[in-house]
Amino acid sequence: MNYSFEYIDIILLAMIAGFIFLRLRGILGKRTGFEGKAPEQFKEVLKNIKIEPQKKSNNIFDEQAQKEFIKGAKIAYETIITDFSDNDNKITNSKPLLDNEVYKQFSEALKERDSRGHYAEITFIGVNKAEIKEHKKSGNILNVTVNFIGEVITCIRDKDKKIISGDPEKIKKIYDTWVFSRDITSQNPNWQLVSILT
């Protein structure tokens, strides 16, 4: 009888071990797919596959840089134009966007307008189009010429609020060509308006 109990114990232990094995296989899975060395017939194919490391573009004004530039140029365009609608006839928000010569020209134009007792009303509608006409590098300086097509509502009034020019009810389309410049070696990422072409 003792022997029969031993056989039953062995059978029970074997069944438990089998159950555990099946459970582990179900949870962990089994080895499948190609995990060894490449078969001989693929070795020649694998020899011809070369993975080239991605090369960093040497062009400092590549397509991505141009897209980012245009976004900033549109903001600068709006900021500079709307700065002329301030009643104090002073350049405030756009001053960092202008180089010294352009800032001087704008300031003189505002002083002249102020001496006449005139002021501008400008409502900026938006930029219909902004595209890079050309970009040139001279030493460390990169100049980018941009064609803008914008829409504004604008008029000039005198001190009695009488309209001198423009129409406060009409949207006007404006065409501008501006040149922005930046020293590419500078830590300052900002561009400045250096010229307005006619």
Rank of each mutant, 00 (worst) to 15 (best):
F5S: 10
F5Q: 10
E6W: 06
I10C: 08
L13Q: 06
A14D: 07
A14Q: 07
M15S: 12
M15E: 07
G18H: 04
L22E: 00
L22V: 07
L24V: 02
L24I: 05
G26L: 11
I27D: 03
L28M: 07
L28I: 03
G29F: 09
G33E: 10
G33V: 07
F34S: 11
G36P: 06
Q41C: 10
V45M: 15
I49F: 13
K56V: 15
N58E: 13
I60M: 15
D62Q: 13
E68R: 14
E68T: 12
K71Y: 13
K71M: 15
G72D: 12
K74M: 15
T79P: 08
S85H: 05
S85A: 15
D86V: 10
N89K: 11
K90N: 13
K90I: 10
S94H: 08
P96L: 10
L97T: 04
L97E: 03
D99H: 07
Q105C: 02
F106S: 02
A109F: 08
E112W: 03
D114K: 13
S115E: 15
S115M: 11
T123R: 15
G126R: 04
G126C: 08
A130R: 01
A130D: 04
A130T: 01
I132Q: 03
K133H: 08
K136I: 09
K137Y: 03
N143V: 02
N143P: 03
V144F: 00
V144T: 08
T145E: 12
V146S: 00
G150R: 01
E151M: 07
I153H: 02
T154F: 01
I156C: 02
I156P: 00
R157W: 01
K161F: 10
K162G: 00
K162S: 02
K162L: 01
I164N: 02
E169H: 02
K170Y: 04
I171Q: 09
I171R: 03
I171C: 01
K173N: 06
K173W: 00
I174G: 05
N190T: 13
Q192P: 02
L193G: 07
S195T: 08
I196C: 08
L197A: 14
